[in-house]
Design a protein around this nucleic acid. Structure first.
Lengths: 155, 155
DNA sequence: TTACATTAGTTGCATATAACAACTAATATA
DNA sequence: TATATTAGTTGTTATATGCAACTAATGTAA
């Protein structure tokens, strides 16, 4: 692959990252939650029910960070903690009704943004975009996955 | 566009965001700079020379935040401040030699990551990916751009 | 069964990130 | 010249995050 094309691709990647970040930030602000809360809320809603450890792993953050983020969600009435029924070390986290409302709202808005996006692009290109997004997501994740849970540094 | 396909696309988008974030974070840690410093450093290196205001606009952050980030880059010997030659209100920021080294290293690593990515994907798909990345970046940016410099809320 | 190891979660502490408001210095304009 | 505007800095505050030390619960081995 031509180095120039790689540079162009990376530039596009950064633009996508920026655009997604802007959308996330906006949704978080609009729903009265912070970005960290928003990301945790989406993962909890998607999983239905999970532990702090699982949540931390999904987001690639420390369990202490998530412990506190969940604190704030619970205080805000968005999530609920309940002791694990079998193993009492585990705590089961799920969305409270208010959290589910915010969860749905974030998805609705993001669906609207993406629908807008597809409407601006000729229909014949849609399949191409879906396929490319899948290829990029899957392959890029594998190419950076080694960094997960480590700095990836070869010191 | 089919709602199911939009959900799939959004999932891919989040995976891409996560992968890019992981790569950024790793690069920053490896080069001994923080994420905020890393982003500022890339913009300064790319522009060659710019002001605090321009830098803040490029990153979508407050000028006070960038004033402090540049402080830390200067303290670390990565960037240099020089008074604007014509208008002394403007301060010209550019990379110091050490900053250029880090800048090149970050680009080299990201180019390697993306090369790896393309190597894992059949050559006949490469053009498709470049085209789709361009379409997504350009169109998605327009669909979220309204949020820039505002919460985008209709309260 | 008891002692030790492991695991999940919480808390203390340090640092990074970021916005807003108030301020200073320089420049532009009426 | 007096006032307004602009770029940048600093004070203050809030959020975000990781590491280390800790507690409580569970598993394991002597």
């Amino acid at each position: 692959m031509n180095p120039d094309q790689i540079m162009i691709f990376r530039k596009k990647l950064r633009e996508i990252e920026r655009a997604v970040g802007l959308g996330d930030k906006n949704e978080a602000v609009c729903c009265g939650v912070t970005l960290a809360q928003c990301h945790a809320l989406l993962e909890i809603g998607s999983a239905g029910e999970l532990s702090i450890k699982e949540l931390a792993a999904l987001l690639g953050l420390d369990k202490s960070t998530l412990s506190r983020t969940v604190d704030s969600l619970v205080e805000g009435g968005l999530a609920e903690r309940s002791p694990g029924p079998k193993d009492r070390r585990f705590i089961s986290i799920r969305l409270a009704p208010k959290g589910k409302t915010v969860y749905r709202r974030i998805h609705t808005t993001w669906n609207r943004i993406c629908s807008d996006m597809f409407r601006r692009i000729p229909a014949k290109k849609h399949a191409l975009i879906i396929e490319a997004a899948g290829l990029i997501a899957e392959t890029l994740t594998r190419c950076t996955f080694g960094f997960r849970n480590s700095t990836g540094c070869r010191k």
